[in-house]
Amino acid sequence: MMICPESKRRLDEWTTRDVKKDITIPAEDPLSAPLTDIGKESTLDDYDEIAVECFGAAILRGMGWKKSEGIGGREKKFV
């Protein structure tokens, strides 16, 4: 099997990349954090009330997205 020179170069770059090997994980106990009430649990009836065309936007709104904002790493504003 022949490998294209560009693919081989990229593979070599990938295998020789500088990888950080000492990862530190905080020793905090995640179960000791205070619990927060997030409201009532959704039911299947709640999901049935949302039109299929609007489902993606509803999920984004649940994650804090607003219609006047863009999506992605750069901050975009829409009027």
Rank of each mutant, 00 (worst) to 15 (best):
M1G: 14
P5S: 15
E6W: 06
E6H: 09
E6F: 05
S7C: 15
S7N: 10
K8M: 12
L11E: 06
D12P: 03
W14S: 06
W14L: 10
T16G: 02
R17E: 05
R17L: 03
D18G: 02
D18C: 02
K21I: 07
T24N: 03
I25R: 05
E28R: 12
D29F: 00
D29W: 07
D29T: 08
L31Q: 14
L31H: 12
L31S: 13
S32D: 14
S32W: 00
S32I: 07
A33F: 15
A33C: 09
A33Y: 15
P34I: 10
L35M: 12
L35H: 10
L35G: 07
L35N: 08
T36M: 11
T36Y: 13
D37H: 11
K40I: 03
T43H: 06
L44W: 08
D46W: 04
D48R: 15
D48C: 10
I50F: 08
A51P: 12
V52Q: 06
V52D: 13
V52N: 02
E53S: 14
E53D: 12
G56P: 00
A57G: 00
A58H: 04
I59V: 15
L60G: 03
L60R: 13
G62M: 09
M63E: 03
W65E: 02
K67W: 10
K67R: 09
G70M: 04
I71Y: 13
G73A: 02
E75K: 14
K77C: 04
V79H: 11
